[in-house]
Design a protein around this nucleic acid. Structure first.
Lengths: 342, 342
DNA sequence: TTGTAAGCGTTATCAA
DNA sequence: TTGATAACGCTTACAA
């Protein structure tokens, strides 16, 4: 074959063909393919043989058109690719999701898009491509999903914004409580001049962890004004760290809303000659691989990211079976993991 | 609505409905939706209005059943999720691919699976889910794709194994030449006792980079037996580094087949008290973010990973249009990037 | 238990 | 330029 010869691609065998080869009707083949019990063993054998021989695989478009099901679910991530790949948190979530999905017939379609998500993603979800969707890293202004909610089941990773009603399904941790434990740990080891680098204030996880920090300091009668906001990236956290040090060079403790951000903060601290934890102790959040791999292994609030992904997928799958007793929320535990940074 | 009330989900409007609302035939609506020029402006206006009003979105299953096209392509990655997320190389590739695909109508379906790939992945590809596929991180034993090749266009990232004919499409760099440049650099800065940590020997990229290393040493009349194989992960590279040091504690230069692996090697070297580059100089491969972020910024062979992803997608898209002049290979340039490690 | 036949929501081929 | 009408490949009542 020479370059550019447009290849004639052999058509895949159809149900029709298998039926003919096996000497039965299309309906019977369909029953065999779908594992119906109401087919005699002999016929099953004949049909199965024909399927093998012809190397038959059902056409998904036809199948989903007829059955009104796709056997696929989407994972919607309203972030750009760089953030998606850059934060180990997502890796853990996806891992958990696929672990659950692998035991099912469902396949996963990844929709990672911050740019124009309202359009392409919406279209995708509304075109009947998937039976349901998982949503992580949800921002409060991402209200384009509210319409989708009435079309297909949605499960959120992290409490969704208030655009969504109280009947929304989600898996989360108690971010406020987690942040309180983390901040308290800094107090417990004797730190009193605490600062925080927060997540984005347009995300519940960002807000809640900040709230936990504030609340703990209030209760201790300390000021909580050494705060800078960032967006869960290392770069933004580094910038926040610089701003923080400019305002308050006397900090002795820092609560950072994610491990990845803590690595960014660490870089700046090292660069400016601060020792961690001696000068400044750090407690982070996530307990992702980034925590262990950090220049100073991070004391951090562990959340079971992979298990959360698993639970999300499980919740969605139950929803898809029409299970009437799926609880709307699943709040999973956090715990303090002590390492070198605090 | 109470917990568990099975929600009645509104059906999406169909072509039929739009046609009725606009007072035209289904065929005409279809023409408008697909941007046919042969529709009078007035009718276009009427139909468009009806589409807007009803919030119509075409059903993809029906469309692809009728048109025998899916407007989707797959990215097949025969690795497990952990490796996929762990190596910045994949992030760059995916970024390049989506950059190209975003300018098109096509959507991307990610198939990341090392376990039982022959089954689930095959089935997916053969079920008519996608019009074509991109394959990266291809192992020589991954011969399950050979059947697929006759069904849909395939474009490989990296030269595929010999299971595939000479008419296979792929985007690659000259790994042998790149490795030669890297190894030569170590010689140029006066190192003479060189070792290498290679990629997996079941991957062309692994083999070729090793070949480049060997060839350079041969030409210099030096021995190339201080070699350990790893699998492109940091962990495997760390183990390889330990084995290497056990055999040869007098190395003064090291060529490592990827940045990620170099970070694993660096950890071991630091742990065992070797200074980089003073005791041992290192040249790596990829020029991914891992190279800059490494404990010692890495001198490395840069390959244009994102551009390669872009080129792969572009090649596939051209193939899908039936373009008769798509070249079978696109070999992109590498170059040496000097940083601190050598 | 098996077969017949009517959809599923599009596109595409003809006529008009 | 527009409209019938027949596919596309499968599932699913309904009959037999």
């Amino acid at each position: 074959m020479t370059t550019g010869t447009r290849q004639t691609r052999p058509a895949q065998p159809t149900l029709e063909l298998v039926a003919e080869a096996a000497g039965v009707s299309r309906a019977t083949v369909s029953r065999v393919v779908n594992g119906s019990t109401k087919v005699s063993p002999e016929i099953v054998a004949v049909v199965t043989a024909a399927i093998e021989r012809l190397n038959y695989v059902p056409n998904r478009a036809a199948r989903s058109l007829a059955s009104r099901q796709t056997q696929a679910v989407a994972l919607v991530v309203p972030e750009d690719i760089t953030r998606f790949f850059g934060d180990p948190y997502f890796a853990a979530i996806v891992q958990g999701i696929t672990r659950r999905l692998d035991e099912s017939q469902y396949i996963l379609n990844l929709l990672v898009a911050s740019s124009d998500p309202s359009h392409k993603t919406m279209r995708y979800l509304r075109s009947g491509n998937v039976d349901g969707a998982l949503v992580v890293s949800h921002h409060t202004h991402d209200d384009f999903l509210t319409d989708i909610e009435s079309l297909i089941p949605l499960v959120f990773g992290g409490r969704p914004s208030d655009h969504f009603g109280p009947n929304t399904y989600y898996v989360d941790v108690d971010n406020v409580a987690g942040a309180q434990v983390g901040t308290q740990h800094l107090l417990d080891i004797g730190r009193r001049r605490l600062g925080s680098i927060t997540g984005p204030i347009d995300m519940p996880a960002g807000i809640d962890r900040f709230t936990g920090f504030q609340r703990t300091l209030e209760q201790a009668g300390l000021s909580a004004d050494a705060v800078e906001h960032a967006d869960f990236t290392a770069v933004s956290a580094a910038a926040a760290m610089r701003r923080l040090l400019e305002r308050r060079s006397d900090l002795d403790g820092l609560f950072v809303a994610s491990d990845l951000m803590a690595t960014g903060a660490l870089d700046v601290l090292r660069e400016q000659g601060y020792a961690v934890p001696d000068d400044i102790a750090i407690v982070a959040f996530d307990d992702s691989p980034a925590a262990i791999g950090a220049a100073v292994p991070l004391t951090t609030i562990s959340q079971p990211s992979a298990e959360m992904g698993f639970a999300m997928a499980d919740m969605l799958l139950r929803l898809l079976t029409g299970d009437p007793d799926v609880p709307h929320r699943n709040i999973m535990p956090t715990r303090l993991i002590q390492r070198a940074s605090a």
